[in-house]
Design a protein around this nucleic acid. Sequence first.
DNA 1: TCTATTATTGATCAAACGATCAACAAGCTG
DNA 2: CAGCTTGTTGATCGTTTGATCAATAATAGA
Lengths: 210, 210
Amino acid sequence: MSTPVRKKAARKSPAERSAEVAAAARDVAIEHGLYAVTLRSVAARVGVTPALVAHYEPNMDALIASTFSAIVGAELTEVGELIARRDTPRERLSLLLATLLDGMRDDVTVIWVEAWALGRRNEALARAVREEMDDWRTVVQDVVVAGVASGDFETDDPASVAWQLLGMIDGLNAHALVHWEDSGHRGSRLGSAVEGMLGLPRGALAVPAG
Amino acid sequence: MSTPVRKKAARKSPAERSAEVAAAARDVAIEHGLYAVTLRSVAARVGVTPALVAHYEPNMDALIASTFSAIVGAELTEVGELIARRDTPRERLSLLLATLLDGMRDDVTVIWVEAWALGRRNEALARAVREEMDDWRTVVQDVVVAGVASGDFETDDPASVAWQLLGMIDGLNAHALVHWEDSGHRGSRLGSAVEGMLGLPRGALAVPAG
DNA sequence: TCTATTATTGATCAAACGATCAACAAGCTG
DNA sequence: CAGCTTGTTGATCGTTTGATCAATAATAGA
């Protein structure tokens, strides 16, 4: 009973099996990190042989890269849809900060940190990381641009501001990963920092109710 | 000529050899990252057998942890002495930010990122990371406290401010590691952000000459 | 100078990894 | 129902890792 004996593994269509492999890789990554996404761990999760996983993927570097993109891309979509429901740039930015720093996505933060480290030895992953970072920047930059247009924000380089914002957020989350003690206060001072960056009056980014 | 043939390896005192091993581990980590610090890579660098490295270290987790502490601790000492030469808290903070974001220490940033990732599988390293982070926080916090005392800064929680500052800095550096393009502007907006956090007038943290 | 200590080594293990390939068998097609 | 396609497997290879241990040789002490 210790090792769940794999009986035979039903024959499935390539599309279906391929999707299974991708899903298993995502599960493993979320639970144990990108480093745990191996030929054998993914195979075990799907309930097939390591050889079959290798059959569906060109190599593990590619699977790890696509797994990273899937996880991070899903998060971006989710957060993007969430803030899109707010009306003003100020509210959107405020909600964006609050959401990304609420401590509910530490598993994704681990993926990010591991990707930064692993990307140095996995070129496909490095490319994926750059792409996802750029997508995130675009979303943040759009909010900033809208805020400048509406007269709420004040900056002459929204792209730069977007980069810096994301850097701060990722740094705070990465820190919280290790120094979990003050998780509650994570980003408690970021509001006034961002207010300083965007020429806002103090308290302008206070978290909106709901 | 491909493999530098190791002749014999002179017998040395335990203290000396132990120091050699530690130094070699630091070199390997700086050049190729913490992941490259293996029994064999360190042994090759010292010019001895992997067995000898194992003889001097309880296990590789410990060597990796102590290597991390050595590298990061040295950086802290260096930066600490640098900013101590400035007179006012405002100058010290300004120099601290400028120094940590000048892009000259990307090799150390890699060590940090790898340590955050590796720490999840190496308990000794995780402890070392927490210790070094706390040492850094202390240094930054001291500057903030001094600034509050002198009336330059305004905050009711210097420790929290210190954490957030370090989080931002590490995040920006980690980002720059991947998105090297805008390395020049790294942290260009952080000044006004920090001014917002500490209730400073705009431009108060402009980099002092020299 | 002789002996006891110990720094150092070669050999070797087991574990985990990515990857390949001939062979099997399930299902589609005629 | 027969035959071809192909999803799937078991076996196996080569590499890299951390770790152990008896044997060797250099040093220090008597």
